[in-house]
Design a protein around this nucleic acid. Sequence first.
DNA 1: TAGTGGTCTAGACCACTTC
DNA 2: AAGTGGTCTAGACCACTAA
Lengths: 266, 266
Amino acid sequence: MAPKWRDLADRLAEQIRNGEYEPGAQLPQIRELVEAGEGSKATVHQAYKALEAEGLVTSTRGHGTVVRPRTPLKRLGIARYDKAKWRDGDEVAFIADRVASGRAYKRNEQTQTVSREIASSLVAEGLGVPVGSDIYARARLVKEGTQPTHTLTSYYRPEHVEGTRIVDPTPGPAGRGGGYRVLYDAGYEIDHMKEALFARVPTAEEVQLLQLPAGEPVVELHRTTYTADGTVVEFAVGIHSASRFAWEYEFRVPDSANDTGAEDSA
Amino acid sequence: MAPKWRDLADRLAEQIRNGEYEPGAQLPQIRELVEAGEGSKATVHQAYKALEAEGLVTSTRGHGTVVRPRTPLKRLGIARYDKAKWRDGDEVAFIADRVASGRAYKRNEQTQTVSREIASSLVAEGLGVPVGSDIYARARLVKEGTQPTHTLTSYYRPEHVEGTRIVDPTPGPAGRGGGYRVLYDAGYEIDHMKEALFARVPTAEEVQLLQLPAGEPVVELHRTTYTADGTVVEFAVGIHSASRFAWEYEFRVPDSANDTGAEDSA
DNA sequence: TAGTGGTCTAGACCACTTC
DNA sequence: AAGTGGTCTAGACCACTAA
């Protein structure tokens, strides 16, 4: 038999999914359910914690427990890196992306700090430099209104960006055109990229920085950007609030029959 | 001030990360910590639940609380779809992928059930058919040894697969060469694909089916496979245990300057 | 059967939000 | 000040695992 708190949580979850409690609606207070015979305070509380972990509600002291609104997924396709957006236009990629996603045009809040750092093993591998090398780090915290949605930290080799606007720690997207435009002006036109992503539970630090609701996972993105000759000009790490983003990739089915040792059975 | 259970959880987490408790090692029993003055049973229990939710330990009744081993991430690149693997060879793609990932060669356990179903809105949209259409569903549960790692359910339009081995509900990867080989033999050679992915907390059903440890997120993958003329021949949905997989995509930076109305400022 | 974590209670008290 | 969720205790009892 399922525990008492599970039963209660399941009943409430069902009511939420049914729409009996709409987004923003308030659930019964814990003490009410205690008096209604749903169990002791600890038991009801445990049920509420479960609903929170499942992403259905958020509880706040003094305020109550309310049904969480479901934010629409922002779909991230590779079109957001279109050269036309940062090379020719006067809008940086992330703005153009926002327009393309069909949302109301609104400049993202974005904090930015640039610092000179020592390459960790992750960054060193991504950037193709020895561990402990001096590198530049440009860290952004991107918000939708007042709510943080993700962080994105770009790492550069000093010889690629020294003296450019990227190194100038002025708030904003590295001046007109963003980081790729700056690299372009410096003679490094980006040509191809690699993105790797995986999901995990956030660290306590990430929960605070991104103001994550209880139970919200994060998606960690590792992006490597190359010039045509294969030089890595940027390695970036992003931490995304999972419920806000989906990633989309289109590609041709590979066929290595001609360039590998595979036997041809035909 | 942080709650008592948070302090305890943080201390234990630090010891785990330090290696003072190695993977597989057993944490002190709850009753021990209660006697050591760390708080009441409920308090210590709450700390242990937090560690579990953070993916650091797993608790089992009768056995104790042990440090979770960190499974290496399996990296999924688009090379796993290489035509050579399913068209020419006698190994199906998922086996070849396993070999390429550097792991010991071992046939995956895989259950498979084929059924005729009514298209949900998700499947209908993915397959390009009206909601409620008859379609074929081929559901697999893939395990690594005895531990499930992900589900993958492929949906097909009846006219593409009727009479092929795909519809034959024999366990195993749809016969020699897998589903893409069957489609190829039927005159539908796959050409390009689209993958969309996002992370979320699992449903109770998924927790049970995939035997997910507490706090483990899942990654949901939507894969659409096309022939050269743009016909969708397969739409697949996968649910992956998050800590076991990373996805990698390489692509060229798009440049729509020539085929859009973008002004040329040069 | 012994030993482990999990559930549950009844009640006290704390921390935060809102008025 | 009133009202909300969060923490904590002490102890009883349950459910599962392993020898």
